[in-house]
Simulated scan of single mutants.
Amino acid sequence: MIKFTLNGTEVETDAPATLRLIDLLRDEFQLIGSKEGCGDGECGTCSVLVNTLVQNSCLIPIGAMEGAEIVTIDGFCESEQFKLLSECYSEAGAVQCGYCIPGMVMASAALLSKNPHPTEDEIREGISGNLCRCTGYNMIVDAIDLAAKKGEGLW
């Protein structure tokens, strides 16, 4: 039995320890906000927070999650931080097809929680594990910068 915290709730599973976290989240817990894009850790669409760090859930066997605190976009969307990021992504025009957005938002949240006043270079580094084919990144960088400015004290 593997036990961990998922979006603030203690859970357990008897799934095989080698099962990928993305599969467990989507299939057993019906948390479909994180998507599988590449399946090999290159695109970031499956990004979740594990103990506050951005991780690609397609690469993590659930056996490594014993005692971990996992936050998915499905749980994060209930937070004030998400509401601010959502508003700023919209205001900056940073959402087009939307496929990368769950991973980008999770990377944004991780960055801002550790560094509430990042420089442009720090923002670009913070989202560097996430691919976006629509926006060219500038609008996403603008959105994160806007969230940093508007979110004084929130992070």
Rank of each mutant, 00 (worst) to 15 (best):
M139V: 03
V54I: 08
V141H: 09
L24S: 11
I60W: 01
E122G: 11
E66I: 03
G136S: 08
G33M: 08
E36F: 02
L146F: 06
I2R: 06
I2N: 11
V11Q: 06
Q30C: 11
E69N: 13
N115Y: 04
L53K: 10
K114D: 14
Y89H: 06
N130R: 05
Q30D: 15
A147F: 12
S47I: 01
D27K: 15
G75I: 00
G63I: 03
C134E: 10
I22W: 02
S34M: 05
A64S: 14
L59Q: 08
M104V: 07
T5M: 04
E28I: 09
Q96F: 12
H117M: 08
S47R: 02
L6N: 03
L111V: 12
G75Y: 00
G67L: 09
G129T: 04
I123T: 12
N51C: 03
E120V: 14
C58A: 02
G98M: 13
P16N: 11
A110D: 09
V50L: 14
E36L: 14
A109Y: 05
K150Y: 01
L111N: 07
G41F: 08
I101A: 14
L59I: 01
L59S: 03
E152Q: 13
E28T: 15
Q55S: 09
G33L: 02
T9M: 04
A109T: 10
E87F: 10
I123M: 06
A148M: 06
V141D: 09
G129A: 07
I32T: 15
E66M: 03
H117F: 08
K35D: 00
G8P: 05
D40L: 13
C38P: 11
E78P: 00
C38I: 13
E122W: 09
G41D: 11
E125L: 15
A17F: 05
I60Y: 04
L6V: 10
S108R: 04
L84H: 11
F82Q: 01
N138E: 11
C58E: 00
Y137H: 09
D74M: 01
P16C: 06
C58I: 00
V71N: 04
T5Y: 07
A15K: 14
F29L: 06
E120Y: 09
A147C: 05
L24M: 14
C58Y: 00
P102Y: 00
D14T: 12
S128C: 13
L111H: 09
P116W: 12
S113I: 02
G37L: 06
K114S: 15
L21E: 07
E80I: 03
S128V: 05
A148S: 15
A15G: 04
A17K: 14
N138A: 13
T18V: 07
V54P: 09
Q55G: 01
E91D: 15
A17G: 08
K114Y: 10
C97P: 12
C88V: 04
I73N: 05
F82T: 00
F76E: 00
F29Q: 03
K114I: 01
I73K: 06
E69M: 04
H117T: 13
